[in-house]
């Protein structure tokens, strides 16, 4: 006799999950009317485009690198400004440090809304308001980065900072004492790790943002694509890939070291 060892309800629920996935998938796939001939046409074009991609040229490398630096700088500046803004606002929002419940609630709602709008849309709006260029990039990035940092900062303040905040409060410390002598010193390393992580995300995003007109290497990539210049495009993609790859390694190392330090 077979003895079932898995949890029945879990199994049943999981079956439901897959059933619904398939039931949703089939009508959606038909709804989109993907045409086979379009697909084959596209695939037929692949060898030709690959051939064009492989004309490796180092000609555009200097321009690519300068624009890459611009991208990095846009990310850097927007992260710096966001750190200041979010440090200010997080302590007004976090449950354990909020001076006023109502203001905290209102700010929280705004942060949720800001976070929901994708970064690209923010940048698009900033470009429409400020015109093309890196300043629009910094402005557009400011909103998503700040809201991301506020969300992670407040979570940390409420989670790990609680004890020191309570201790200072019990001693009769004022709000300033709570923030500057309690929360910030305890959370210093965690905040730095979050900022490093955020910087990594932001750099990845600035590359994209150039493509909607906010300066940096994305502008070049967009130009290459629209003029079908695949050789420099490959170079650009490689530059982006290597940068993001190195950044991933570095931030992982920083986070690891900070985690070790904190222990």
């Amino acid at each position: 006799m077979k003895i079932p060892i898995s949890h029945k309800a879990t199994r049943r629920n999981q079956r439901w999950f897959f059933a619904i996935m398939i039931v949703l998938f089939i009508p959606c796939a038909f709804y989109l009317k993907l045409s086979y001939s379009q697909f084959m046409d596209g695939v037929g074009r692949v060898p030709d485009i690959v051939k064009q991609f492989l004309h490796i040229s180092l000609e555009d490398l200097p321009t690519l690198l300068t624009e890459l630096l611009t991208s990095l700088i846009i990310a850097f500046l927007s992260v710096i400004i966001s750190v200041f803004l979010s440090l200010l606002l997080s302590f007004l929002i976090a449950d354990s440090t909020a001076p006023n419940r109502l203001i905290a609630k209102g700010l929280r709602l705004i942060v949720v809304i800001v976070r929901t709008i994708p970064t690209t849309i923010w940048v698009l709006l900033a470009v429409a308001s400020m015109g093309f260029g890196s300043m629009a990039g910094v402005l557009g990035l400011l909103f998503p980065t700040t809201s991301f940092l506020i969300k992670s900062f407040t979570a940390q303040i409420d989670e790990t900072g609680k004890d020191s905040v309570e201790a200072i409060r019990a001693l009769g410390g004022t709000w300033w004492h709570v923030v500057f002598n309690g929360a910030i010193p305890t959370l210093y390393t965690t905040f730095l790790a979050l900022i490093a992580f955020n910087f990594e995300i932001t750099v990845a995003e600035t590359v994209i943002l150039g493509m909607v007109g906010a300066g940096g290497i994305g502008v070049l990539l967009q130009e290459y694509i629209s003029y079908y210049e695949f050789a420099p495009l490959l170079m650009g993609i490689l530059v982006v890939f290597i940068t993001l790859f190195i950044l991933e390694l570095v931030t992982n190392r920083i986070r690891k070291r900070l985690a070790d330090n904190a222990r």
Partner: peptide, 10 residues
């Protein structure tokens, strides 16, 4: 690590 919008454009 190649940005999504680059994939989309290609």
């Amino acid at each position: 690590n190649v940005p999504f919008l680059v994939w989309a454009s290609i």
